[in-house]
Design a protein around this nucleic acid. Sequence first.
DNA 1: CCGATAGGGAACGGATGCGTTCCCTATCAG
DNA 2: CTGATAGGGAACGCATCCGTTCCCTATCGG
Lengths: 239, 239
Amino acid sequence: MTSAPLNIADTSDNTAANAHRDDDQSASELTSSGQEGATAGEEGVRSRKRGAELEDAIRCACVAELAESGYGGLTIESVAARAQTGKASIYRRWPTKQELVLDSLTSMMSGPVMRLADRTYDDTMTTRDALLELLFEVSEFMLGPEGDAMRSMMGESLRDETFTLSFRCDFFDPRKQAVLDLLQRGIRRGEVRTTALDDVVPEMIGGLFIHRILLLRQRPSRPELERILDGFIMPAIQS
Amino acid sequence: MTSAPLNIADTSDNTAANAHRDDDQSASELTSSGQEGATAGEEGVRSRKRGAELEDAIRCACVAELAESGYGGLTIESVAARAQTGKASIYRRWPTKQELVLDSLTSMMSGPVMRLADRTYDDTMTTRDALLELLFEVSEFMLGPEGDAMRSMMGESLRDETFTLSFRCDFFDPRKQAVLDLLQRGIRRGEVRTTALDDVVPEMIGGLFIHRILLLRQRPSRPELERILDGFIMPAIQS
DNA sequence: CCGATAGGGAACGGATGCGTTCCCTATCAG
DNA sequence: CTGATAGGGAACGCATCCGTTCCCTATCGG
């Protein structure tokens, strides 16, 4: 660790490993309460998930493994262990590691991404404030395990056509479009100069986040986001 | 394979016998003693490199493999094959795959990076033009095999302390500093507003490149760089 | 309560890659 | 020319992981 005063969510303790980590994981469901329970357990927790519930747990475990160990480090066995299931149950559903990862990734990204793309802003909101909102949401997303998973896949997508495509379609494009829509809206409202409607804008914003959050692992505070927005983004686009 | 016009040393022909090449590799050059006639071969090419020459060839092959196959896909055997040597010769020098990669990467990055960081600009050059020059050089670097190698390492550096550090120190920081120096110079010259001296600026520029070049694999033309610079970067920083 | 279904666990054969070792040979110094 | 040194090639043992198979058992519908 060390190196810099990062306020990362966590990472780091690879050793602590299985000290129960179904913490956030969001999405899936709960059922929660202790794991295992194979034996001795008297608590009435179902120890064997089935069907869709199991599938979600596997996808979820897959993304978590991806975030933690990367694509190269991810093994079907590790996913199975984390999802508390067996390899056979995974192979029953996905023919290869590649398809499991791809499916887990896309099914995970389609949720939050759609929220952003379809979002509408009421007329009292300035472009500046709407952008701030967007920046904040994107940064929150990238700070989560999904962000680490994304980062792990960047290198891999260099070599895998399918990954590249899914990456762009499911993640980048919707976000880019959300920013472009906001710019368009700003132009209509007279807050943004017409020439600012340019792919470069979402790319710079996205790039900044990739750099800061994914590579440097810093969490930008809301005031920091405002500072960036007011200091550098708005001056570059406003009319 | 395929994908883009990289100018990597070579690769590909693992099958073909040893049609030896010691093409560029510089430095070497025949060491007098013109007498070859070593074996039956009529081509008088030295077939066995030694010492520093061999070491360079190995590092070079390592980076090329990294760019092509990623860290996970890189094997000592593949590096050896590309460098036309044996595994033993590699293990004689580097104890593990990790150290080989790290050493190859840093020794490769320290060259071009230093050029940027130490660069000075004569007084007739505007900040805008100097930035354009810098942008151009960085983009050229990232478009080469070194860029792909970098991208391949991004995911890995998430899990490896040493990689992260080397990455930041050897690559990011010098570039960031080069931009900051340019901003400082611009402030002195009255071309840049004082509040623009901010980490965000190099981060946005770097992020844009990561996004465009590494992720999207597009080559920004010089006019395109000028458009970006004049349209969005300068407006954000000028006084 | 019981039988059908689906999940869990463990072991397998096969492949791959690491890091080592051994031996032969190209290269270089003298 | 010759002996010392260093490189090349191939095989080995070891470990890991893939994808499969087999068998037992938890769960659920009826």
